[in-house]
Design a protein around this nucleic acid. Structure first.
Length: 498
RNA sequence: GGCCCCAUCGUCUAGCGGCCUAGGACGUCACCCUCUCAAGGUGAAGACCGCGGGUUCGAAUCCCGCUGGGGUCACCA
């Protein structure tokens, strides 16, 4: 059933700069972006850096580059500003944006100053566990103190955190646009008094993101599944402020390939950077990621950005987790590479060849022209642009034969192979018009003359000229190699065999 | 362990009570094409719809229980 969406829609992606962005993060950003485009709303980027300990220099810039790579642009964000800036939480904190809201909750008795230290908390947790209590739900004694008493203690210099005064009884319920049903409900007795402000005065995610979402007029909070357990706290905070709640959309997580847990930055090779380095097309990544947790119908998979935006709807978002499938991504990438014209593929593989040292870096005009000539031979064989150097390296330096036996075709002996190569050399030496069709015509005639199968002669030549059993089509290869180099390589092969 | 979420081929999914002897894609295998490898074409294997109860003339589809998997239990996000 279609989910009614009230536009204008405002969504956001709010990562913390703690390292590289993995593809799960990109997927979450992508769904937000697609959703905004679909309903003609805004997509904003906000950096949540309230955790000074985990902050990684350069991570924010890196993450923005990753998003832009797949084609995600934001309408408001740290680097481009917007009407509700700044879009970096540490800056917002410095500007004192959160302070009045904290004060408000304190004044109204919705939150309280908690003087229990981290060390004390750890002790209490350990003691609780020793008594067999598995779930430690902290409620500070100060939750019942009058505010004046809390302030008096604070005035003595004692440090404190600010905690939300979570109701002891009753239930907290919220709806989720992906899960539907009657909504998700938890007993308040299963909750604890979450920390809203650290003892350093820095607000925590729970408080900061929510104030920001409210101030930035976010209508839909679309985030990963792992946030479901903390959603009740957010609902309670909205209620404490008396603010209108955004709609919650919890996206299924992307699981590891083996299905054991969610993707991890440390254990899995899923940094988004890795994919453009290896030669994945942004269009393919976009298409693949859109299909992680969403589908259009029972058979359509290859879709352009525009088609995906046009067709996207929340009721087709899967509630169950997806699983990381690099094989499928690779297949899609191959499809997108094949859709590209040869000229573009040539332009895009040139940097990989340069990096591999096969051509100059940066490539010369002559290099580029040669790459243009070679590209049609490997175009449809490419699933990652980064595979190009491996497929083409023998065009740039002489092959060497690790195993001369590969020069001998099936059902042929060494003498036969030698004779065939010598005959081919003589035949090719006479050819003036060095183009694939002419080469094919002459060499096919030679197979009949020699009474050998095409596969035998062509196979021996393929190895002679490329040094490998698997290579691009023979005649195109010879043509691209030019006559002189072809003859030289065949001679070298004859030497090796003989 | 508590709490929450989820459950269709190995994987991603279609399916919203009869169209399902369950469709598509990746992967796997075979054949065709063919100078090798790809690409392309054709086809095959692969899911008693996790299990057990209901509801119904009829259930993969609705309800309950169980089991399994995942997430989360921080002064991290």
């Amino acid at each position: 059933m279609p989910i009614p969406i009230t536009s204008p829609v405002r969504v956001r992606f709010a990562p913390s700069p703690t390292g590289f962005l993995h593809i799960g993060g990109v997927r979450t950003a992508l769904f937000n972006w697609i959703f905004a485009k679909r309903y003609g709303g805004q997509f904003l980027l906000r950096i949540e850096d309230t955790d000074e300990k985990r902050f990684v220099v350069g991570a924010a810039a890196d993450l923005m580059a990753s998003l832009r790579w797949v084609g995600i642009e934001w309408d408001e964000g740290p680097d481009i500003g917007g009407p509700y800036g700044p879009y970096v939480q540490s800056e917002r904190h410095e500007q004192g944006i959160y302070a009045p809201y904290i004060e408000q909750l304190l004044q109204e008795g919705k939150a309280y100053m908690s003087f229990t230290t981290e060390a004390e908390l750890a002790e209490m947790r350990a003691a609780a566990e020793a008594r067999g209590i598995k779930a430690f739900r902290f409620r500070g004694p100060e939750r019942d103190w009058p505010l004046t008493q809390q302030r008096e203690l604070a005035a003595t210099g004692r440090t404190y955190t600010v905690r939300l005064k979570v109701p002891l009884e009753g239930t907290t319920t919220f709806t989720d646009l992906v899960r539907g049903g009657d909504g998700i409900s938890v007993n308040n007795s299963d909750l604890y008094d979450v920390v809203l402000v650290k003892s350093t005065g820095m607000p925590l995610y729970h408080l900061a993101h929510l104030v920001d979402d409210h101030l930035m007029k976010i209508t839909h909070v679309m985030r990963s599944d792992e946030w479901v357990p903390s959603a009740p706290y957010h609902v309670l905070i909205y209620q404490a402020f008396g603010w209108q709640m955004p709609a919650f959309v919890h996206l299924p997580t992307i699981q590891r390939q083996d299905g054991r847990g969610k993707l991890s930055k440390r254990k899995d090779d899923v940094s988004s950077n890795r994919f453009w380095e290896r030669g994945y097309l942004a269009e393919a990544m976009f298409n693949y990621l859109a299909l992680q947790g969403w589908s259009y119908d029972d058979h359509t998979e290859i879709m352009s950005r525009e088609e995906i935006i046009e067709r996207f709807s929340l009721d087709r978002v899967q509630p169950s987790p997806a699983r990381w499938n690099p094989e499928k991504l690779k297949d899609l990438n191959g499809i997108y590479i094949r859709k590209l014209p040869d000229e573009q593929v040539a332009e895009r593989i040139a940097p990989y060849l340069a990096q591999a040292g096969l051509i100059a870096n940066p490539p010369s005009a002559g290099d580029l022209a040669y790459v243009q000539q070679l590209t049609p031979m490997i175009h449809e064989r490419l699933e990652e642009l980064g595979e190009a150097p491996e497929l083409l390296d023998f065009f740039f330096h002489e092959p060497h034969f690790d195993d001369p036996a590969t020069l001998i075709p099936k059902k042929m002996d060494k003498a036969g192979a030698l004779a065939a190569l010598q005959a081919a050399h003589a035949c090719l030496a006479k050819i003036e018009l060095w183009v694939p069709s002419q080469l094919e015509e002459e060499l096919r005639a030679l197979t009949e003359e020699l009474q050998v199968k095409p596969g035998q002669l062509f196979g021996a030549l393929r190895v002679a000229v490329s040094g490998r059993m698997v290579a691009p089509p023979l005649f195109e290869m010879l043509a691209a190699l030019d006559k002189q180099r072809t003859l030289k390589r065949i001679s070298a092969a004859i030497q090796v065999l003989g």
